[in-house]
Write a protein that binds this DNA or RNA. Structure first.
Lengths: 175, 175
DNA sequence: GCATAAGCTGAATGTGAGATTCCGGTTAGT
DNA sequence: ACTAACCGGAATCTCACATTCAGCTTATGC
């Protein structure tokens, strides 16, 4: 593959990631092309169609998140590990990108990766519960959902105040 | 107005409210018509166009919410009043319907009603803070945003567990 | 019961926002 | 300098709605 082609391809994926992250739904091929500084035609040289492009970045994002999450398993305190996972989730266009892909994905690894990540997070949540940093009445599965709520807001960050407030709801009640 | 016309009109608005509530974005006139059990043409007999229909139900929803919120002002404990307001917010297709209307609304009362409701909620939040049921480090304005986060999830309810967990983040930290 | 205005239906049409194609012009790489 | 890879972006194709309108129904007043 020619050097410029490689360069363009990565410009496209990162543009797509950026836009999917901030505009969420409704990222047009044309917008992505403009953001990447290439013509629309170039998108089609690298990806057979819109869905292929989206699924591609979704797979990348999930893989990265999976790796980051794996690295947190077993760390103590688990609550902090959970916060770091949120950080990573937020950095990736995960929820947003996935939201763009409706119907059966062509890439079978998509649901697999997702399930794996969920399982790991649930595991960390269980640890946090054992350590007393997490309400006992929240099933680890639900933790994932709360994380989603916190993360799906546009421009969320684990260190911003609002996100923090939402996550604090997961900690054991004071009385 | 003929009796059947009145009946149809209300079938239309309630169908629109229901659909806007569950599908959020992207409610087509045809979907509304089907849900209401009438032909599309009938929608246009009652509302000049899509926007008019949407704004109409948005105004209704906001009026109702405003009234419900007014009724909670001054109640003690304010925290409980806040929870009840959330209940009402959730019952109405508020956020969702508003999200459907982009650009300058034709109905000027829309932003006015919204501002009024926000002000009332902020007031109740301030009371709750005074009563020690709400973190001191959350500006009342931000309370509204957290409420939005909690409410904007599809099918949220103040009494469902997940919503409750998110709202608990607003309470004073235990240490 | 009937006249008739008010209502209703839903296929047909209009439209706009994108997705996708494709052909002439550009390059990286040798 | 040559050429297989590439690229740009206007032109085209699609499709999902919104909106209209020419008949057909049905309340309602008499």
């Amino acid at each position: 593959m020619r050097a410029d082609a490689r360069r363009n391809r990565s410009a496209i994926t990162s543009a797509a990631i950026r836009l999917a992250g901030e505009r969420g739904e409704a990222v047009s091929m044309e917008d992505i092309a403009r953001e990447a500084g290439v013509g629309v035609g170039t998108l089609y040289r690298h990806f057979s169609d819109r869905r292929a492009l989206l699924e591609d970045i979704a797979v990348d994002a999930l893989r990265e998140l999976l790796e980051a999450t794996r690295a947190e398993v077993g760390h103590t305190p688990a609550w902090e590990a959970l916060l770091r996972v949120v950080d990573h989730s937020v950095a990736l266009p995960l929820a947003l990108t996935k939201a763009l892909i409706t119907g059966e994905p062509d890439r079978p690894e998509l649901p697999e990766l997702e399930a794996e990540v969920h399982a790991l997070i649930a595991g960390i949540a269980a640890d946090a519960q054992r350590e007393g940093d997490l309400r006992a009445d929240v099933p680890p599965t639900e933790v994932v959902r709360v994380l989603n709520v916190a993360v799906c807001r546009r421009g969320a960050r684990a260190d911003d105040h609002l996100t923090r407030v939402v996550l604090d709801g997961l900690r054991p009640p004071k009385n």
